[in-house]
Design a protein around this nucleic acid. Structure first.
Lengths: 144, 144
DNA sequence: TGCAAAGTTATAACAATTACAATTTATATC
DNA sequence: GATATAAATTGTAATTGTTATAACTTTGCA
């Protein structure tokens, strides 16, 4: 799993073509999500960026996440009741797993034919698959 | 889709064998979920039961839903960000669809092999599949 | 009948998110 | 390049769903 680097100018370009004005804050926030595998929440992002951007406000994080999601640059991961998490929107469809031990959220493959059982007449524009359980690391700890 | 009737005594019996004391309120709340196809939220249940049980408190609804869920008699449907919905726990595994038009939540078939793409080493104890889109009724309205 | 445990209730607290208004920053026009 | 205008950011306050607390009530059992 090599992590691709999204330069600020590349992120800005993506925002530009998506119709979102690439401000300093939005670039930092989008970069945060794109360079993390942690599916951060608004508060995670605020905590991570605050030291470098002391004037950043939590409201801006929420506003930016909303704008970037509406523009199709981010996706929401609604696996953690009461805390929305965010993911980059460029990847091939995948599902998510949340560990009950450490709370981390992992990517997983999307099951094939995930809409196979859809009732005829219903127009599906979004599919989310959420798994919960124990990650390998937490399973190891438990068994020792 | 015939709706099975769960008598109060049957619900009480189910609670009893699940280790939950079958109080008047809990029976009413459980009955509400079991006789509805709407996947009601705590507030839906409170609103529906209030006329008949004027002294019922919203806290009791939350407490009861928690107890019944922990006992395995109810399941949570976390498809509507910020509003937990509830479903009876007796059915064969199925997925859920929420209509962006009317907000209603429908049952759907669970895709076969829904864990087929699970990463080895991860222990999955819960799978949720959530679809969003437009239900047939709302699609009709839009096209007229 | 009386006691202890559990359940219900009303109120208050909480946490995540959104609304609002003022300030700041950026874009477009002259 | 200066200025008007629009958009973004910020801090504060409000909102909403849910949970904690403590008093009261009911239930089950000796």
């Amino acid at each position: 799993m090599q992590s691709i680097t999204y330069t600020e100018s590349r992120l800005a370009e993506m925002m530009h073509s998506a119709g979102v004005r690439p401000t300093l804050q939005r670039i930092a926030i989008m970069s945060c999500v794109y360079h993390s595998t942690k599916h951060p929440s608004a508060d995670d992002i605020y905590t991570e960026l605050s030291p470098e951007y002391p004037s950043l406000s939590l409201t801006t994080v929420y506003n930016s996440l909303r704008a970037l999601t509406a523009a199709g640059l981010l996706r929401t991961v609604d696996i953690d009741s009461g805390n929305m998490h965010y993911d980059m929107a460029l990847q091939t469809p995948h599902s998510h797993f949340m560990c009950r031990g450490c709370g981390r959220i992992f990517d997983m493959e999307m099951p094939s034919d995930v809409c196979g059982g859809a009732t005829p007449g219903f127009v599906i524009d979004c599919v989310d698959v959420y798994y919960k359980g124990i990650c390998p690391q937490c399973a190891n700890i438990q068994n020792n």
